[in-house]
Design a binder for these strands. Sequence first.
RNA 1: GGAAGGAUGGCAGAGCGGUUUAUUGCGGCAGUCUUGAAAACUGUUGAGGGUGCAAGCCCUCCGGGGGUUCAAAUCCCUCUCCUUCCGCCA
Length: 427
Amino acid sequence: MLDLKILQKCPELVERALAARHSDIKLADFKKLDERRRGLLSEVEALKSAKNKISAAVAGLKRTGGDAAALLRQSSELGARIVALDAETEATKSALDAWMLRLPNMPHADVPVGKDENDNVEVKKWGNIPSFDFTPKEHWEIGSGLNGLDFDRAGRLAGSRFCVSWRWAARLDRALVNFFLDVHTKEQGYTEVLPPQIVNRKTMTGTGQLPKFEEDLFKLEGWDYYLIPTAEVPLTNLHAQETLEERELPLAYTAQSACFRSEAGSHGKDTKGLIRQHQFTKVEMVRFAHPDASCAELELMRGHAEELLQRLELPYRVIVLCTGDMGFGAAKTYDLEVWLPGQNRYREISSCSNCGDFQARRAGIRFRPAGGGKAEFVHTLNGSGLPTGRTLVAILENNQRKDGSFSIPKALRPYMDGVEAIERCNT
RNA sequence: GGAAGGAUGGCAGAGCGGUUUAUUGCGGCAGUCUUGAAAACUGUUGAGGGUGCAAGCCCUCCGGGGGUUCAAAUCCCUCUCCUUCCGCCA
């Protein structure tokens, strides 16, 4: 949610931001609603003030035994007008709130302006793209061939966009989770959290999934419960409606969770394999930062995600998303894209965003400045570190051999009982 | 699933229809005293919104929502959450 004051005082700034995002939201609607709300408020508050004065006068008369009949009549009349005006004010306020909740965040000043993913800017490349003396396979071929990934049985158990990982693949998934969490908690200063993976509507609204993106979520029928699409949701809302102390900042949390996404609107895209699933496991990082520090914190967190790819020896590049490609709540986003030989291109494996005070304002996450004074909104950041599925894809494709086997990255071997490669004979 | 008791400012905890602008304590902040600190004493200390150049004035908020009343933290209904006990259960 944006600051109401910015909308009122600098509408041209907001309009420019909306244009850069290619949003079709019109500020004229806001202006009309806000002016109406303020007019009604002034009117009804004047009436309430008058009524409060009458009530005080009645109290005085009751004490001294005077006759309050005339005042009581006056107060009743005022009351009726107040009820009607209150209802009108409330309706206007609700309409304004609903409008505000659907307004995306404003891009940070240094985000490149652009239309779609073609305008994203590459800022870094790491690692060497492997060359093969055979045609590299896609991950589902390798994974199925080695009896680790089973899409057919998953289809029968649930449907499309699900996968059964078993044997070495299940074990490797667990190894990745442990490896990621160990690096985050033991080396990068994150506090490990095991949050609920089902949350209510308010929580989903706090991080910006609702009200606008309901169709992307799985909802439990008959309950005010949604399956989380990412641990960013419970982690960021961990401090909803709280006022933190400045000295506590930055707070850094990491959690492993299942992520559930309806993938409505992506029919036909990545229908094969692990790239786009209804359920996947991801380790997420979330940071609560002082507003002055959030830009530097984004670089730091991006580095934390990069560290994992480097230790796994996976080639990747870093891009800054342009204004037109950024998510709803983000002010600035880096995507890490890992090289996939089977697809012969880079694919997103991590997204690290600075949301500024956008989520903090929705969820009510403040901090009290060290010198005292008014509480301010914190800045929230989130980043994948990393999803296990796409990481497995990258390992399979980059480390594959001609015979259909693949090697385990050295960093993971301690988590795999020292196994160096998965071959057909492995179970 | 059943029963009982709770939810009040950063925290603790009074208030149970109208001198309550929410008593008091702790904590925080400022000051007095002090070489400095502590202690003591004094003052101060919530959020959101409207209006105004400003000082200020005004409105709303005692878990959420609804109701009774001229007037609700206080009475009624309802929901949520917490505590205790019983039942069931991995």
